[in-house]
Amino acid sequence: MSNVNGKVLKHGTQTRTMHWIHLLAFIILGLTGIGFYWDIGGIASIFGGEANASLVHRWAGVVFVVGPLLYVLLNFDRFSRFMDSISHFSKDDFAWLKVMGGYLPFIKVDEVPPQDKYNAGQKILGWLIIIGCLLIILTGFPMWLWRHSVPAVFLAFCYNVHFWTAIILILLVAGHFFLAAIHPKSRVEFSSMMLDGYIDAQISAHHNAKWFAELKESP
């Protein structure tokens, strides 16, 4: 399969749209959140002061929830296939993790084990993002809508969980961005999610061999 020509549609329009919406909301949320949690006045003033930054943060939070939620409900099949893929860990995935996908310079590896549509690292990232988003959403809304009625101890709990989850998510997303857009081994993936959705068949056959074997050819 080393000489396959053509293109693979890796991420459909809906998926890419959702990814963009979620990403933009995340960036706005991160900037505003950092701005008013650490009192970095410069960041808050981009959004028109602390109070407005908070308002932007809350409504960006709504987008952050509604975007993926609509996607899941309207594209339940895509979501289900995604969940199936990231929840299936085979021997190859563990082997991939053992060599860290060949990304680390001090682990020499000739050929990484064949992977599904998402490699083992992406599967773990998927889970962490899902759990992180759940936590940040569940703690975020009480801080906004029930801030007056919940007890102080619960509010403090929400702020702490929200804060630490945000820190972890920002680091994860930064790592995700580095591997998917900058790292020479995998930056070819960038266009498949951020632009037209297509990736070279040859690259897919190499990086996602198991998945590529299941693909159908368009008539």
């Binding site: 109070a51 801030r147 102080a152």
Partner: peptide, 26 residues
């Protein structure tokens, strides 16, 4: 104090409306 995280919980606790500030603003 400066540790205020602008969570706005206190404005509802206060019986006299003496606390000013909205969510996000100290």
């Amino acid at each position: 104090s400066d540790d205020c995280k602008a969570c706005d919980h206190c404005t509802f606790i206060c019986p006299t409306g003496a606390i000013s500030g909205v969510l996000g603003q100290k």
